[in-house]
């Protein structure tokens, strides 16, 4: 019997959607291991034994100074090489909401090839155009040209956003490069926060590291969708398929370890 791929869920002070993410990975067929940042800094070995890394949503350190900023700095100073090694080993990473903010502020996204050493921050997630928290459902269009492994075979996802600092901002040349390079994974059908070019999620050049503001982990059950009581078939736009893609990818990688050198 094949062992299930294992997802490492990273949490710290103020992370609060780890339960939602754990449930999504479990439904998608993975095991999960939840580790506190302090413990992972002390002992990064779970990054070697786990197959997928998940950075859940929440308000790490209260989102004080700026959303994800303090956690990103801590990772930058204490954990960045280990996470880079994780990605280099061909293992998928997802950052949702606060996790996306952290991936962007550590420079892991967009993670251009030349950024590997200095890890500069190229893009940002900042105050919504109407600068306050908003929770509403959005429609997300998967970009057909994306190299993201998480969104393979998916056209549309519907799920809630829940953020105050979700506006994706980048200089025009960076936006152009993301587009040409297939790194724009998701766009909002209707832009809820003023994001540049309606961008809701991006991936790194390998397609393994994926960050998005909306919460696909909150549309994985038949009674999650806003319109489920109308009898609408909500499985068509479920967020679960994202997690299934990664779990499948990880399972295949584990089955053929030699190909990931």
């Amino acid at each position: 019997m094949n062992a299930k791929p294992k997802t490492l869920i990273l949490r710290t002070a103020g992370i609060n959607r780890e339960g939602d993410l754990i449930r999504a990975f479990e439904l998608a067929g993975a095991e999960t291991l939840t580790v506190h940042l302090h413990a992972l800094i002390d002992d990064p070995s779970p990054l070697e034994t786990c197959d997928i890394l998940g950075l859940p949503g929440g308000f790490s350190y209260g989102d004080d100074i700026a959303a994800g900023r303090i956690l990103a700095n801590r990772i930058r100073h204490r954990l960045l090489p280990a996470i880079r090694g994780f990605v280099a080993a061909g293992k998928p990473v997802i950052g949702i909401c606060n996790g996306f903010q952290v991936l962007v502020k550590t420079g892991l996204l967009p993670g251009f090839e030349e950024d590997a050493d200095a890890s500069p921050q190229r893009v940002t997630l900042t105050d919504n155009a109407l600068p306050r928290f908003v929770n509403k459902w959005v429609e997300l269009d998967v970009q057909s040209e994306t190299r993201c492994i998480w969104t393979r075979g998916i056209e549309r996802i519907e799920c809630p956003i829940a953020h105050g600092e979700g506006r994706f901002v980048a200089p025009p040349q960076v936006l152009d490069r993301l587009e040409t390079n297939g790194q724009v994974a998701l766009r909002y059908a209707t832009n809820p926060n003023g994001s540049d070019r309606d961008i809701a999620g991006i991936c790194d050049p390998t397609g393994l590291v994926f960050g998005l503001m909306p919460h696909p982990e909150d549309n994985i059950h038949p009674t999650h969708h806003t319109a489920w009581t109308t009898g609408l078939d909500t499985t068509a736009t479920s967020g679960l398929r994202l997690f299934e893609n990664a779990v499948q990818y990880a399972a295949e990688r584990v089955a053929q370890p030699a190909s990931n050198a």
Binding site: R17, D20, R23, R132, N135, K136, E217, D218, H221, H224
Partner: peptide
Amino acid sequence: VRQYDHEVQGGSV
């Protein structure tokens, strides 16, 4: 309502 997160914890029905 929209300023409150009413989905977190994944149990919204």
